[in-house]
Amino acid sequence: METRRAEFWVPYRLIAPAVALEAGLVIGPLLVGFWYSLHNVRFFQIRSFVGWDNYMRVVTSPEVLGSLAATAIFAFFSLILTFALGFALALWLERDGRSATLMRAIVLVPYMIAMLVGSMLLKWLFSQEAGLSQLALGPLGMGDVSILANPKSAMAALVFNAMWRDAAFAMIMLLAGLKSIPPSLHLAARVDGADAWMRFRRITLPLLRIPILITVVRLLIHFVNILTFPLILTGGGPGNSTEVVVLRMFRLGFQDHILGPANALAILVFLANLALVAMLLLLFRRAGRL
């Protein structure tokens, strides 16, 4: 009896340090941030309680609204293109063999290196000084166009950055799903005379539904919260054309030091994420992992 009572607390003692760390550094900041978002804050000092004023200021600010539009455009195109490329890579590199293994590793390199470094290398690739864009666009009569100085092409460069880095992530997630499809299904369909397209439509797609949804939601969460790509590659410019919402929040908090509105925006971004994460959890539950 004595030992059993002692045993009861063992798992709680084992998880206590982990729970404490998460509570302190993930939940704690959110509570503090929420508290600050309800106040007028000057130079890290809370001045006065202002209720929802900061939230009103944030949601009516033209800069924030503009940044929401930029985020939507970026996330939409990045999601479609990154997913499509990742899926194509997964199907192409699914088979065993040395060349497929090597190619999978090569595709993963942009994903493995620091986002900062990746964006820096692309900034150099796209910059006018490197001369590569001039060399490529010159024959089209656009030789003196700087890719990063035009709002549309700067956004396109940002989407390219997303594809270049994150297609590998989509690929790995979908490869894991593809591996779980028993090869006998494809074999049987083949015997019955189904061609490759038919097998893809009737076997691969339906059986991959949940992995596809999970990949899409995880990519979406990642793109909605993007900071490093625009901070390094475009600096949010030209003008504010590529200033996404997290970059706006970053600038409010860490460059302008307006902590009240910055925390209000952070809490709003967090709530938006919560909705996406809830979606993800539902998908996991359906996938039968939890």
Binding site: P29, Y36, I221, G253, F270, L281
Partner: peptide
Amino acid sequence: RDTLMVSTVAVMSIPIASLLVPTFTL
């Protein structure tokens, strides 16, 4: 235990970006 496992996945999925300003404040 079940709550703990669901929270683990939930916390795993929260993007760091949305925590930056509050964390710095803390």
